[in-house]
Amino acid sequence: MHWNYVVALVSLLLMGPLTVDAAEKTCRGLEVKDLEDGCTIINEAPLIFKDLKDEALIKKKTETISIIEHGVEVIETNIESFEYLKNVKRISNNKGPAIIFRKNQKLKRFNFAGLKYLKGDPVDVVFEDDHFSSVGGSSSESFQDWMFLEHISRSTHHRTEKCSKQFLEVRTTKESTDDAEYKLPAIIAMCVFALLFTVSLYLTWHDFYHRKSVEKNDKKTTKKKNKKSSEAGTKSLEKSKSPATETPTKSKSAEPTGSK
């Protein structure tokens, strides 16, 4: 019986590391929808979130991940809240930012509740032409999400300084600036064109209506004149047809001449 306990203990000691290794699955980083199932560690390349239409699939691919060693990129999504990595404990990248949010049109919230370690090089978090950077300071909920990452970054780097440049960088690319510089004059030009078109349309309509009104009045005036002229002609004709009234003249009868 004693030897049975010894054998069981030795077996547990030998199988323990194998069990831990079997639970871990290291996968190369790529777009999350193409990731293998059951990955726990992501390395060699960033984990990319871009096409997130199949939410159930994305959750299934990410639910087992605990460590990301080459950063996370959230790019050009339409989501308002990013919650796919709330169980991840460690995000790092020695070749760039640990987390990049780029050109997400509606992003307002993110959830990294399980995160304990955040470290990038030379900066931990980057917002590049991203909607969140415009609401992070105005929304209390967005600000809390922001400050949570800042706290984890400060703890990881053992900093006492809050909101260090090593934590966050907000970028505006030249492309987006050029687009903005192009779009503003274009929008103004379109507005001016629309205004001129509206004014032109109104003037054309007003001129058309005015012409119609004048023509209508002219027709009425002509009709009245013709009617009066016709009536005058009729009266003149009737007068010319009626017999002239003559006054008879009395003549004195000639008296016979002779002697009485």
Rank of each mutant, 00 (worst) to 15 (best):
K224T: 06
E231I: 10
E255Y: 02
F101R: 00
K235N: 04
E141T: 07
G233H: 09
I58H: 02
K228E: 14
K183Q: 13
L118W: 02
R90V: 00
F127H: 03
N217Y: 08
R171I: 11
L9T: 14
G96Q: 14
A254N: 01
K183F: 13
K250C: 00
K165Q: 12
N43L: 11
R159D: 12
D179K: 13
V20Y: 15
H131A: 12
R109D: 04
K216A: 10
H158S: 15
E128K: 07
W146P: 02
V199F: 06
S251I: 11
T249C: 02
T62L: 07
R109Y: 10
N87C: 01
S229T: 15
E80R: 15
K241T: 05
Y182N: 15
A22G: 00
I79D: 06
T204C: 14
F197N: 08
T247R: 12
S134D: 08
K174M: 05
T156M: 05
H210C: 10
K50D: 14
H131Q: 07
G29W: 08
F132T: 04
Y209D: 13
E246N: 04
D145S: 06
M190T: 11
H70L: 02
I187M: 11
A113E: 15
R102V: 11
K212S: 13
V126D: 01
Y209T: 13
R90F: 01
M190Q: 13
S200A: 08
N87A: 09
L168E: 02
L35H: 01
G136Q: 13
I58A: 05
K53M: 06
V123S: 03
L47M: 02
G258L: 05
E169W: 01
I67C: 00
K162C: 04
P97K: 03
G233K: 13
Y209H: 14
S242F: 11
E44D: 12
R154F: 01
Q166T: 14
I188M: 11
G137H: 09
N43E: 15
F148A: 06
T234H: 12
N226Q: 10
E175S: 08
Q105G: 09
P97L: 01
I41N: 09
L195C: 10
V214Y: 09
H70G: 00
F148M: 05
D51G: 03
S164D: 15
Y202Q: 07
K225H: 09
Q144L: 08
K53F: 05
I75M: 02
A186H: 08
H151I: 06
E128W: 00
N87W: 03
I41R: 04
E63L: 03
S240E: 12
